[in-house]
Simulated scan of single mutants.
Amino acid sequence: MMLLSPKTLSAALKSVRRHRGLTVQQVADRMGLAKRTYEYFESDKGGLRLDHLDAFAEATDSDARAILVAALSGAPDFASACADTKAMAILFSTVARVEPYFTSALAHLTTRDLAGVFSAAFADLIGTGQERRDQTAPTTVTPQTQCPDDPPPSPPQPPDPDRSRS
């Protein structure tokens, strides 16, 4: 098993570029690369160059750390999902800020401690994201299902957590 999958890295770069609605030529121009050189970079034929990755993140206003995490985790769409929020940049910045305290405590934590805290934190983030998505999701009403005299549709309800566990 490779630590960093070239195929997944390539897919992550393409995911970000497409998320931004940019062409290969546009990104190449923004990075100051020839189109062919950029194509080699995006297809990972020339190997990973961190200077190109940083330039790509700047050219696409994305998160270089999220691109690496996407490639390491085998989840290429994670890179484009983090492009707007810079989620991994925030996470790494937080780690750097708390590192002096965290490092001394880390040796005294167990795998169970870490998994529990990380799982709870991610579950909370997922819940918050789903609530915000549901609040901003447009309600689609077609003429066949909505008559002018009908009351307005009720807002979407968040899923019942007790029902999803069964």
Rank of each mutant, 00 (worst) to 15 (best):
F102S: 10
P158V: 07
A107W: 01
A81S: 14
Y40P: 05
G47R: 07
V95C: 08
L114K: 12
Q157C: 03
A70N: 03
F122H: 13
E99I: 00
P76K: 01
Q135H: 11
I67K: 05
S104M: 11
A105K: 04
D77W: 04
R36K: 13
I126F: 11
V141H: 09
Q135C: 08
A71F: 00
P161D: 02
M31Y: 01
H19C: 05
P151C: 12
A71G: 09
F78A: 07
E39W: 05
T128D: 15
R20G: 09
F118V: 14
R65E: 14
L91V: 15
P100C: 05
S5K: 10
T136L: 13
V27L: 06
F56C: 04
T60L: 02
A28M: 09
A107T: 12
P156H: 06
T140K: 00
E42G: 07
D29F: 08
P159H: 03
K7R: 13
L9P: 07
T60C: 12
T8I: 11
K7G: 11
T142W: 06
Y40C: 07
D160L: 05
T85M: 02
D51R: 07
S43F: 06
T37K: 10
R112T: 12
Q130K: 15
A57W: 06
A34W: 04
R30H: 07
T140G: 00
V27I: 09
F102N: 00
A70M: 05
D149G: 11
P143I: 13
S15Y: 01
A137H: 09
A59G: 01
D150L: 02
G74L: 06
Y40S: 14
S154T: 15
S164Y: 14
A12T: 07
R97H: 14
V16D: 02
G116S: 05
R163I: 12
L125R: 13
T111A: 12
A120C: 09
R132A: 15
A75V: 14
P143L: 13
M2Y: 07
L53A: 03
L48M: 09
L13C: 01
A66R: 06
R17C: 00
K35A: 13
T139W: 03
F78T: 10
T128W: 06
G46T: 15
P153T: 13
V95S: 00
K7E: 15
A120Y: 03
A121Y: 10
E99H: 10
A70C: 00
K14G: 11
L50G: 07
M2E: 12
T111L: 06
Q135M: 12
S73I: 00
A83K: 03
P143E: 11
P155W: 04
G32D: 10
Q25G: 10
S119L: 08
E131R: 15
L33Y: 13
D44I: 15
L4N: 01
C147E: 15
F102R: 00
V16S: 05
T85D: 08
T37Q: 13
M1T: 14
T140A: 11
A87H: 02
Y40T: 14
S93V: 02
A107I: 05
A105W: 07
R20D: 04
Q157D: 08
P158L: 05
P159E: 00
M1W: 00
S5P: 02
V141S: 15
S154N: 09
R165L: 15
